[in-house]
Every structure is written in C-alpha cells, then in structure tokens.
Amino acid sequence: MSGGIARGRLAEERKAWRKNHPHVGFCGKAGDVNRWIGQFDGVELSYSGKARTEWEGGFYPLTLHFSEDYPSKPPKCKFPPGFFHPNVYPSGTVCLSILNEDSGWRPAITVKQILVGIQDLLDTPNPADPAQTDGYQLYMQDKEEYKKRVRQQAKMYPALL
C-alpha cells in the first residue's frame, strides 16, 4: 500500500469514529478500529446482536476489507462462511445496496453508515435482494422458524469474555 486517497480517507474515518462512533453493538476485535490505517487486509469487528431481537446474545464476527481503491470502491464486508441470513451469501459476503459498487455505492458513504446499514439489514432483511436460498425461503415461508434459526445461530457465536 503506497498511501494515497484510501489511507487519507481511512485516517479521517478513524478520527470521526473516535469522536462519534455508533452505539450499535460494533466493537474492535483483533484488528481494532484504531488501526484502520494500513489494515487493508481487513478490519475485524464483532457485532453484538441488538437487545430484544432474535440476534440478541450473539457476538458475530464481521470483517471489512478495504482496497487501495477505497473510497472509489466499497469495502467488502463479510461474516463467517455459512452465516444464516437472507442477505448474506454462503461465502459470508454481505449483500447490501450501499455496498454494490455498480449501483448503490457512493464515495461519500462512511464506515459508520455501512455498519448501521448492516445492523439494520440483520434486523430487517430485504426479501427483494436475496443472497442465499435457505435464509430467504425460511424468511418468506415461515417467520417463526426463521426466528428460531436466528436464535440458534446466536448461540453459535457467544459473547467474548
């Protein structure tokens, strides 16, 4: 990484995060957000499921991969492979309109907006843009079973001590 626009933008994002980060349940893990600069291999965060939702109790690992083309191109956001959600591909890649470099991405979108968007997507799946068959079909055909499966997944990702 030779520096440039991506490094400068991430430095600004880091400053903004430190002043006003979202209280949405995201926290730094191995790749602490204070080390965004130079972390183009992936900033590792964990999302703590919102209280009073099926996601509560889980601590879900999420990696943001920034390329040298950031912010011209969006970061790749991934949960672990096999993550159960209608808008997460089997590979773990998040399917969210603001992360689509061909249509929804704009360089003005911030990391904070991305994280809030991912949280909203988990809580409210978008059935118009499915990324995995199992999650989509269960969400559309049997909401109670879908919620049960999400609660089971929460137990697979317990809070870190």
Rank of each mutant, 00 (worst) to 15 (best):
residue 92 G to R: 05
residue 108 A to Q: 07
residue 4 G to V: 00
residue 63 T to S: 12
residue 20 N to Q: 08
residue 161 L to G: 15
residue 153 Q to R: 03
residue 78 K to F: 08
residue 145 E to K: 15
residue 123 D to C: 10
residue 63 T to I: 14
residue 138 L to P: 14
residue 6 A to S: 15
residue 2 S to V: 14
residue 93 T to D: 11
residue 96 L to W: 06
residue 109 I to A: 00
residue 43 V to I: 15
residue 63 T to Y: 01
residue 30 A to M: 07
residue 26 F to L: 01
residue 125 P to A: 05
residue 63 T to H: 02
residue 76 K to E: 09
residue 100 N to K: 09
residue 28 G to T: 09
residue 68 E to Q: 13
residue 19 K to H: 02
residue 56 E to H: 12
residue 21 H to N: 10
residue 1 M to L: 12
residue 16 A to G: 08
residue 88 V to N: 09
residue 53 T to L: 04
residue 103 S to R: 11
residue 61 P to G: 05
residue 31 G to C: 11
residue 79 F to Y: 13
residue 104 G to K: 12
residue 109 I to S: 02
residue 73 K to E: 15
residue 56 E to G: 01
residue 48 S to Y: 12
residue 145 E to M: 14
residue 155 K to D: 00
residue 149 R to M: 14
residue 130 P to L: 06
residue 111 V to C: 06
residue 70 Y to D: 12
residue 109 I to L: 07
residue 157 Y to T: 02
residue 5 I to D: 14
residue 38 G to N: 10
residue 61 P to K: 01
residue 101 E to P: 12
residue 57 G to Y: 09
residue 136 Y to K: 10
residue 13 E to T: 05
residue 84 F to N: 03
residue 71 P to G: 01
residue 112 K to A: 08
residue 83 F to P: 04
residue 105 W to N: 05
residue 25 G to C: 01
residue 107 P to D: 00
residue 110 T to I: 02
residue 5 I to F: 00
residue 33 V to C: 07
residue 62 L to P: 13
residue 131 A to C: 01
residue 111 V to M: 04
residue 34 N to I: 01
residue 5 I to L: 15
residue 106 R to P: 06
residue 78 K to N: 13
residue 79 F to Q: 12
residue 98 I to R: 03
residue 154 A to R: 02
residue 12 E to T: 10
residue 87 N to Y: 03
residue 153 Q to T: 06
residue 39 Q to M: 13
residue 97 S to E: 15
residue 159 A to C: 11
residue 52 R to E: 15
residue 133 T to P: 00
residue 46 S to H: 07
residue 61 P to A: 06
residue 23 H to K: 12
residue 140 M to K: 14
residue 18 R to F: 07
residue 140 M to L: 15
residue 150 V to D: 04
residue 16 A to D: 11
residue 90 P to C: 01
residue 30 A to I: 08
residue 106 R to Q: 10
residue 91 S to H: 09
residue 109 I to K: 02
residue 4 G to E: 13
residue 88 V to Q: 11
residue 71 P to D: 07
residue 30 A to Y: 11
residue 33 V to N: 02
residue 132 Q to E: 11
residue 53 T to K: 07
residue 4 G to R: 06
residue 64 L to H: 10
residue 71 P to L: 03
residue 161 L to A: 14
residue 149 R to S: 10
residue 95 C to E: 10
residue 145 E to C: 11
residue 36 W to Y: 08
residue 28 G to F: 02
residue 138 L to D: 08
residue 146 Y to T: 01
residue 153 Q to W: 08
residue 85 H to P: 15
residue 102 D to C: 08
residue 91 S to N: 11
residue 161 L to D: 14
residue 108 A to M: 02
residue 151 R to H: 04
residue 131 A to D: 08
residue 157 Y to I: 03
residue 153 Q to I: 00
residue 4 G to A: 01
residue 140 M to Q: 14
residue 96 L to G: 03
residue 85 H to Q: 07
residue 133 T to G: 05
residue 51 A to W: 04
residue 14 R to K: 13
residue 148 K to V: 00
residue 37 I to D: 10
residue 120 D to Q: 09
residue 149 R to Y: 12
residue 109 I to Q: 00
residue 73 K to D: 14
residue 75 P to A: 08
residue 127 P to G: 10
residue 76 K to M: 11
residue 110 T to P: 07
residue 122 L to A: 03
residue 76 K to G: 09
residue 150 V to L: 05
residue 129 D to P: 02
residue 104 G to I: 13
residue 151 R to W: 01
residue 123 D to K: 08
residue 68 E to A: 14
residue 71 P to Y: 00
residue 40 F to M: 13
residue 96 L to N: 04
